[in-house]
């Protein structure tokens, strides 16, 4: 986890706002993209916690992790990995999909 002085400063400022949670240790979850599928396609994370998703793209083609519900969008180049921080989130289901191959690359984040 990155902890530059810049971040520390911002997090201090950020404490004015409710629901801020940068200082807790960030859990790490690995996700694979293979044959335009997310494996696993269901990711369960705890409520009100920031999580670091490491997405390994095992396909030749690029993919874009996209979720309107999570408000995230990131291109993951073929045969490489990408890192996305999500949360903290209230409980619920947050579907995501691969924008480049949306019919197969589907999944959801379940916040419990």
């Amino acid at each position: 986890m990155r902890k530059s002085p810049f971040i520390w400063l911002l997090s201090v400022i950020g404490f004015i706002f409710p629901g801020l949670n940068v200082l807790a240790a960030t859990p790490l979850i690995d996700v694979e993209i293979k044959n335009h599928l997310f494996i696993p396609s269901e990711i369960i994370i705890p409520e009100n916690t920031k999580v670091k998703l490491v997405i390994h793209n095992r396909d030749e083609t690029d993919e874009e992790f996209e979720s309107y519900e999570l408000n995230r969008e990131k291109v993951i180049i073929g045969n490489r990995k990408g890192i996305i921080f999500i949360g903290p989130l209230p409980a619920g289901e947050y579907p995501f999909f691969g924008e480049f191959f949306p019919k197969t690359a589907q999944g959801k984040v379940i916040v419990k």
Binding site: M1, R2, F6, I7, L10, S11, G14, F17, P18, G19, L20, N21, V22, T26, N48, K50, K52, Y68, E69, N71, R72, K74, I84, F85, G87, P88, L89, P90
Partner: peptide
């Protein structure tokens, strides 16, 4: 910047996607 964790992450303030979806 939040997605990259360069800025602190927070809970969303509200959710209006039922009212008007970004899609």
């Amino acid at each position: 910047m939040i997605q990259a964790d360069w800025l602190p992450a927070q809970m969303p303030l509200w959710n209006t996607s039922d009212f008007l979806s970004e899609k």
